[in-house]
């Protein structure tokens, strides 16, 4: 049933069915999200600046989600020797890198008016900057070794080593004093963000996920084609 997640030809068949409806759905949700963001209220402290959140937070979540997916595929790729895992790793690494970059740039633009600085080396900001470096190393590792098996295995092992950074990013704001504020949505008590601002945030997150998913499907299809014709 979930064969399309590990089998290239099943994936291709599934992707052909799902791609067009997905693009339509994504456009609708993205437009709806942008309208919701436009209509969303101003923050009692930050005013208009709070709207950077609707770009910053979804891209941060997606950067972490993309890396988690790569970690899972690296585990099954090495353990079960499934070539499709390495196709996915190669295809989605640049997507995660771009989400991380969007997160860092939007965060910097947000920090200047609110904190009074573009950048500080606190635990949260530094660990996300390290995530960007890890993504870049993963992309460049793929251009190193001549031997395909060695290259893919090395990349997968590096992805696994880099995955220790994920919990550090998530919990950095709880473990250490940081300038970055703690989590608002993913915490045990009810979210400390008003429902009128949470709704556009979640809709934008779904829109960002679908954009990432569509690009991922296209890149995986392209990678399968390249390998077939080699």
């Amino acid at each position: 049933m979930f064969g399309f997640l590990i089998n290239p030809s099943k994936f291709n068949k599934f992707a052909d069915i799902i791609l067009k409806p997905l693009i339509l759905l994504c456009s609708v949700i993205l437009i709806a999200g942008l309208i919701l963001v436009y209509l969303s209220p101003l923050d009692y402290q930050q005013g208009l600046t709070v709207k950077i959140m609707y770009i910053h937070v979804p891209s941060a979540w997606l950067a972490l989600l993309t890396y988690s997916i790569m970690t899972i595929y690296s585990v099954i790729g090495i353990a079960f020797k499934m070539p499709f895992s390495f196709i996915v790793n190669k295809a989605v690494a640049p997507i995660g890198a771009v989400f991380t970059l969007i997160c860092l740039i939007s965060g910097s633009l947000w920090g200047k008016p609110i904190w009074g600085t573009w950048w500080v080396w606190d635990a949260r900001l530094t660990s996300v900057a390290i995530l960007l470096l890890i993504y870049l190393i993963i992309i460049f590792l793929d251009k190193t070794f001549e031997n395909k098996e060695v290259r893919e295995k090395t990349t997968a092992i590096f992805i696994l080593i880099g995955s220790v950074n994920l919990p550090i990013i998530k919990f950095s704001v709880d473990w250490w004093n940081t300038l970055h504020q703690p989590a608002s949505v993913s915490k045990l008590s009810s979210p400390s963000i008003d429902i009128s601002m949470l709704q556009p945030l979640l809709v934008m997150t779904i829109a960002f996920s679908l954009i990432g998913l569509i690009i991922a499907i296209l890149r995986i299809k392209a990678e399968i084609l390249i390998r077939k014709n080699r």
Partner: peptide, 17 residues
């Protein structure tokens, strides 16, 4: 030498305040 404002994790519309 420099002063940074720290803000917390609460977000709320100005009208509700």
């Amino acid at each position: 030498l420099s002063v940074y404002a720290k803000h917390d994790e609460n977000y709320m519309p100005a009208s509700i305040k």
